[in-house]
Nucleic acid binder design. Structure first.
Length: 771
DNA sequence: TGTATGGATATTTTT
DNA sequence: TATCCATACA
C-alpha cells in the first residue's frame, strides 16, 4: 500500500503528472493541498527529482507553513531543501542576492502600506497635490495597479499623454518611485515588479534560478496578478538538457474563489492558462470532502448565478446534514447576541468546542458588536485582521529604529523616530534638514550628521548630534563580534529611553504598549533561534514586514475565530456563521453602485461562495433588519445571495425573543461582565487588550428610535426649542433646533457671542436657564 | 515646540 | 462612531 492509493482517480492523475504545464482546477474542499504535497513526494521519490529543484509558492505564510509541515511528513529525506514560500518572500530572497545589479543596495527596506501612505503624503505636498481632492490612497491604488501590470513610471507618463488627471498620477508615480529608490526601499508591489525587472535585465540571474527551480508549483493561482504571471512564466521557461522548454509548472486554483480582483488579481491567468502554456493538461478535482450535501448544494446554487466560469460541478459523498439556517433578526445587536448565545449553549451542552466555530463577516467593522457580546459572555475568541500587531505605534517606532540602523537611507524611518521619544526636534527643524538634504542630494540621515554645517541650524545641532551618536553607537555595536540581535533590541529600548518613558507614564495604555514591545522582543528571539540561516537584522525586518494577521492564527487554541470572508479563504470550520447578509453590506453598496455592477457583484458572489464552502457540518446565515453603521441606523433588505439559495435547502428560523427586549437591562450586564471577567488570563495579550478596550468603551445600547421620536422622547432633555441654555464655554444661548443623531441628540444653539453651534447633548452639558 | 481642540472625514476586502 | 488632521493656543 503506497501513499498514493488513498487518492481518488483525478487526484492521482494530478499527482502522477511529472512533466509539462498542468492546471489543476480544484474546487473548494477537494483536497488540493493533499495533491500538491503528494505530487512533491512523488517527484522526489519516484521520479528522482532533487528536492533542491522544487519551488512551491503560496500567498500566505500560513499556507506555506502548512505545506512545509505536510511535505516534511511525507518526504523523509531532503525536504528541507524544497523551497516553500510566498510570492513576496520568494522575491525578497531573490532580490537580496541580486538587487545591486539593478541599482539598489542589498540592505533595502520594505515599506508597508502605512509607510506608503506617509511617503505619498510627502510626495503630494512636494507636488502641490491637494490631498483633499485626491487622497493619497487613491493615488497609491493607481500606482499599485500600474505596478501589478508591470507599467513603469515612464511608461505610465507616456500613456497618460495630455490627460490632466493621468499626468498628475504620472507625476506622483515618478516622484514616489524616486523617493523609494532614494530611501533604498521597496513597497510590496515592487518586490514582484523588481524581481521581474531583474530577470529581464540580468540573464545570469534568470538562468541561475531557472536551473534551480526545475519544478514549480503555485497555489491559489486564481489570485495571481499580471506581474506574478510574468514572474512564474520567466522562471518556468528554462531550457532543459535537450534544448527544450519544459514548463514544469503546476498551478492549482479555482476561478470561483477568485476574490482579489480589487488587488490586481487577473482572472485571465487561470482562464487562459491553456493559451499561455500550450500543451497544458487540465485536471478537475470535483469531489468535495469537506461539507455536507446541503451546504455544498447551497454553494453550487449561489455560484451558478455567475457567468463566464470554468465549467465544473462539485459533488460530495458526505451525508445530507442539516439544512442551511437563515435568521432575519430585528437588529444587528440581536444578531450578535443570539449567535453568541447559541454558540455558548452548544459548547456548554458538550455538543461542540469553541474552536469549531467561525463567525464571518464582510467588513472588519462588523466585528465590534460580536466582540462586545463575547466579552460579556466570557467566551474566548480571537479576531483576525482588525489591528495588525505590526501596525501599532510602539511596534512601528521600535522597528523604525531597527530599520534606521539597518538602512540609513530609509528616510521615512529616520524621520519617524527622530523625535520619538521627544528630543525637542520639531517640524521646523525637520523641514530645514530635508531641504538641505535635497539640495545636497544626500539622505536625510546623512544631512543630520552634518547638522552643524547647515545654515540656520547651528543652534539645533546640540539636539541633533546626540541622536546621531545614539544611532552610530548602536550601529557599531551591531558590527561587533558576538553581539546578538536580541542584545541590540534591548539596547535600543534602553538607550533611546523609549521603555523608560512608557514605564514612567504608568497608565494602562502604556502597560499595554510595553506588553506589545515585550511581544516584539519575543518574536525577535524566536527568529534568532529558528532562523534557517545566519540571523540578520535585515532578515528579521523582512520577516516582520511580510506577515499578515492570519499567519498568527494558532491551531489548537480553544476559541471562536472572527474574521472577514477574505481572510477565511483556505480555512474550514465545522460550524460557520455568516452574518450581515444584507444588501448594501454583502454585497456591499460599493459593488452595487459601481460602474460595472455585474462584474463587481460577481466578485461578491464568489466571496459568498468562499464563505459557504468553509462550513463542514453546519452553516448559519443571518441578516438584520436594522443596523448601526458609522453612527447611523440603516435599514437593509436581506442579501440577494439568500434568495439564490433554493428554499428547500434553507431552514428559516424566526429570531428568538431577543435577550434584551428593552434597553435598560443592559447596564446590569455591562457591569457584571466587567467584574467577573476571569477569562482575561486565558487570552493572549492581543485579546485581553482588545477585550479591555471595548469593555471600557461599551455603552448601553439604545433601541434606535428612528422615525417617531419627536414627541415623548424629548423628555430626556430638560430643555427644548426656544429655551435658554448655558454652555460652559459659549455662555448663554437659545436652542433653535434639536435632532436625533446616532444615539444622541444634536442640539443647535444660537449663542450671541459665538454664533450658531451644533452640539451633542451628552457632551455639551447644557443647562437650562429659567428666565 | 508641544498640546488641545474641534472639525472633517471615512469606512471593502490585504500580501 | 472613531480616527485623523489642521489650527489655535500655551
Amino acid at each position: 500500500m503506497s501513499i498514493y492509493d488513498t487518492l481518488n482517480p483525478e487526484q492521482k492523475r494530478a499527482v502522477l503528472h511529472d512533466k509539462g504545464p498542468l492546471l489543476i482546477l480544484a474546487g473548494a474542499g477537494s483536497g488540493k493541498t493533499r495533491v500538491l504535497t503528494h505530487r512533491i513526494a512523488y517527484l522526489i521519490e519516484e521520479i528522482g527529482v532533487n528536492p533542491w529543484n522544487i519551488l512551491a509558492i503560496t500567498f500566505t505564510n500560513k499556507a506555506a507553513r502548512e505545506m512545509r509541515e505536510r511535505v516534511d511528513k511525507l518526504v523523509g529525506y531532503g525536504s528541507e531543501n524544497i523551497w516553500v514560500s510566498t510570492f513576496h518572500s520568494t522575491c525578497v530572497r531573490i532580490l537580496r542576492r541580486y538587487i545591486d545589479t539593478i541599482g539598489y543596495s542589498r540592505s533595502f527596506t520594505i515599506y508597508d502600506s502605512d509607510d506608503q501612505k506617509t511617503l505619498m503624503r510627502e510626495v503630494c505636498k512636494y507636488l502641490n497635490i491637494d490631498t483633499k481632492k485626491t487622497n493619497e490612497r487613491s493615488i497609491l491604488s493607481v500606482i499599485s495597479k500600474a505596478k501589478d501590470e508591470l507599467i513603469t513610471p515612464e511608461e505610465f507618463e507616456r500613456t497618460a499623454g495630455g490627460d490632466y488627471n493621468q499626468s498628475r498620477y504620472a507625476k506622483a508615480y515618478i516622484e514616489y518611485q524616486r523617493r523609494l529608490k532614494a530611501s533604498n526601499a521597496l513597497d510590496f508591489d515592487d518586490l514582484i515588479m523588481k524581481t521581474v525587472e531583474l530577470f529581464q535585465t540580468n540573464k545570469e540571474a534568470l538562468t541561475y534560478f531557472q536551473n534551480r527551480f526545475r519544478y514549480i508549483m503555485v497555489d491559489e493561482y486564481q489570485d495571481t496578478n499580471t506581474a506574478q504571471f510574468h514572474l512564474i512564466h520567466l522562471l518556468s521557461s528554462g531550457i532543459n538538457e535537450y534544448g527544450d522548454r519544459e514548463f514544469n509548472l503546476c498551478v492549482v486554483g479555482d476561478d470561483d474563489q477568485s476574490i482579489y480582483k480589487f488587488r490586481g488579481a487577473n482572472i485571465y491567468n487561470i482562464l487562459n492558462f491553456e493559451k499561455a502554456f500550450p500543451n497544458a493538461q487540465v485536471i478537475k478535482l470535483e469531489q468535495n470532502y469537506r461539507s455536507t450535501k446541503n451546504i455544498l448544494n447551497a454553494a453550487n446554487e449561489v455560484i451558478a448565478n455567475n457567468q463566464g466560469r470554468k465549467d465544473k460541478a462539485l459533488w460530495t459523498d458526505n451525508e445530507e446534514g442539516e439544512p442551511v439556517h437563515f435568521t432575519h433578526f430585528n437588529t444587528d445587536f440581536e444578531e450578535a447576541d443570539n449567535i453568541t448565545a447559541e454558540i455558548q449553549r452548544m459548547v456548554e451542552s458538550g455538543e461542540a468546542n469553541y474552536h469549531d466555530f467561525a463567525i464571518l463577516y464582510r467588513t472588519n467593522a462588523q466585528s465590534r458588536l460580536f466582540e462586545e457580546k463575547l466579552v460579556m459572555r466570557n467566551i474566548p475568541y480571537r479576531i483576525i485582521g482588525s489591528v495588525n500587531f505590526y501596525a501599532r505605534k510602539e511596534i512601528k517606532d521600535i522597528l523604525a529604529y531597527l530599520k534606521t540602523i539597518n538602512n540609513g537611507l530609509d528616510n521615512l524611518s529616520v524621520k519617524r523616530i527622530i523625535n520619538v521619544p521627544r528630543r525637542g526636534i520639531g517640524l521646523v527643524t525637520i523641514d530645514k534638514v530635508t531641504t538641505y538634504a535635497l539640495q545636497e542630494n544626500i539622505s536625510f540621515y546623512e544631512a543630520l550628521t552634518r547638522a552643524n554645517h547647515i545654515p540656520g541650524l547651528e543652534r539645533m545641532a546640540s539636539k541633533i548630534t546626540p541622536f546621531v551618536s545614539l544611532i552610530e553607537g548602536l550601529k557599531s555595536r551591531l558590527n561587533q563580534e558576538g553581539y546578538s540581535l536580541s542584545e541590540l533590541i534591548d539596547d535600543v529600548l534602553d538607550a533611546t529611553g523609549y521603555l523608560r518613558e512608557l514605564e514612567e507614564e504608568n497608565s494602562e495604555e502604556a502597560m499595554d504598549r510595553i506588553a506589545n514591545i515585550d511581544e516584539l522582543v519575543n518574536k525577535l528571539v524566536t527568529y534568532e533561534e529558528n532562523a534557517p540561516e545566519e540571523p540578520t537584522l535585515a532578515g528579521f525586518l523582512e520577516e516582520v514586514a511580510l506577515v499578515s494577521d492570519i499567519d498568527n492564527l494558532e491551531e489548537g487554541a480553544d476559541n471562536i475565530v472572527l474574521m472577514t470572508l477574505h481572510s477565511a479563504k483556505g480555512l474550514e470550520f465545522p460550524y460557520v456563521y455568516m452574518c450581515g447578509m444584507e444588501e448594501g453590506i454583502f454585497p456591499g453598496y460599493m459593488s452595487i453602485y459601481a460602474e460595472n455592477p455585474v462584474e463587481e457583484i460577481e466578485e461578491e458572489r464568489r466571496l459568498c461562495y468562499v464563505g459557504i464552502t468553509r462550513a463542514m457540518k453546519c452553516l448559519s446565515l443571518s441578516a438584520a433588519k436594522q443596523r448601526m453603521l458609522r453612527g447611523e441606523t440603516q435599514f437593509n433588505r436581506p442579501s440577494r445571495f439568500i434568495q439564490e439559495i433554493p428554499r428547500y435547502l434553507l431552514k428559516v428560523t424566526a429570531p428568538g425573543p431577543g435577550r434584551f427586549p428593552s434597553s435598560n437591562q443592559n447596564s446590569n450586564f455591562t457591569t457584571t461582565a466587567r467584574e467577573n471577567n476571569p477569562m482575561n488570563t486565558n487570552f493572549d495579550k492581543q485579546n485581553s487588550w482588545s477585550a479591555k478596550k471595548t469593555t471600557d468603551s461599551y455603552k448601553p445600547y439604545l433601541l434606535p428610535k428612528a422615525k417617531h421620536f419627536e414627541g415623548s422622547n424629548m423628555g430626556s432633555l430638560d430643555y427644548g426649542v426656544g429655551d435658554s441654555v448655558k454652555h460652559i464655554k459659549f455662555g448663554v444661548g437659545i436652542v433653535t433646533n434639536i435632532t436625533k443623531g446616532g444615539k444622541d441628540y444634536e442640539v443647535t444653539v444660537d449663542f450671541p457671542k459665538f454664533g450658531v453651534k451644533k452640539l451633542l447633548s451628552t457632551f455639551a452639558n447644557l443647562v437650562k436657564i429659567n428666565e
